[in-house]
């Protein structure tokens, strides 16, 4: 297991290095924006990571609710996975917001604007922060159930947030991928994009696995402490 983990880290670093090389040296300079466009190779992978890990959080939360009575061990595992998914997702979301902001300053001339996609991502970020806050405010099996319920509520809000802000206003450039006939990335930029998506997803999986391991140990420590407390109250026959 440990060998696998370090092997994965090595793979990750290799991918990140190759992705960096592709993004900085191989991909051509963008015609109108110049080198600042290269931040795009880090901006888009962040959103991919965010989408994947928030979906992991939802799946694990539903699994927890479905199995908490019948398969307690599976439920604990999925709770740890839900936490790891939410935390890594929030990190990706934060990186995406910051890289977007850094890009917007020279290109749009402003750090931030209340546009459809920016606003909905910010709200998404707020929702998952409140999820993590709830996990910090309560404890034990209660908290796990409540957090799983909140995760479902939060995820159900995502499409509504998206549509409401879409009708509200729009400034973000139209989606580069699947955005209509004139959108689409120049084929020469595609390798840099894909390598970076793969690299950052691999990195996310590595960090999430560490976080998952820590949470599982914490759960086991709590269980052992509860067991010891229970045993110490038992009368021992002489």
């Amino acid at each position: 297991m440990r060998i696998f983990r370090w092997g994965w880290l090595a793979l990750c670093l290799g991918l990140l290095g190759y992705g960096f090389y592709q993004a900085m040296y191989v991909a051509p300079t963008e015609a109108t924006m110049g080198d600042i466009q290269r931040i795009f190779y880090y901006h888009v992978p962040s959103w991919c990571g965010m989408a994947v890990f928030f979906a992991v959080n939802l799946g694990a939360s539903i699994t927890y609710l479905a199995t908490r009575r019948s398969h307690p061990l599976l439920a604990l595992n999925s709770d740890a996975l839900a936490l790891a998914g939410a935390e890594v997702g929030v990190v990706f979301c934060t990186v995406g917001l910051i890289t977007g902001s850094l890009w917007a300053r020279p290109v749009w001339g402003i750090w931030w604007t209340w546009d459809e996609r920016l606003t909905s991502t910010l709200i998404l970020w707020l929702i998952y922060i409140s999820y993590l806050l709830l996990r910090g405010f309560a404890a034990g099996p209660q908290m796990r159930t409540l957090a799983a319920v909140l995760a479902i509520f939060g995820y159900a809000d995502v499409p509504i947030v998206y549509f409401s802000t879409r009708w509200w206003r729009t400034q973000h450039p139209a989606p580069v991928f699947f955005g209509g006939p004139n959108s689409g990335l120049d084929p020469s930029m595609l390798p840099a994009m894909l390598w970076n998506i793969a690299a950052w997803l691999a990195w996310g999986v590595w960090v999430a696995s560490l976080r998952y391991g820590i949470e599982r140990r914490k759960q086991r420590a709590e269980q052992n402490a509860a067991l010891r407390a229970l045993e110490s109250t038992l009368e021992v026959a002489p």
Binding site: L134, A138, V149
Partner: peptide, 24 residues
């Protein structure tokens, strides 16, 4: 009802409610 089980329940309710209520 969720924040009833938490510490600082009075404080937790707006923190959970406001983000999800934003679209409405």
């Amino acid at each position: 009802a969720i924040s009833l089980r938490a510490r600082n329940r009075e404080m937790l309710l707006p923190l959970l409610l406001f983000p999800i209520f934003i679209p409405a």
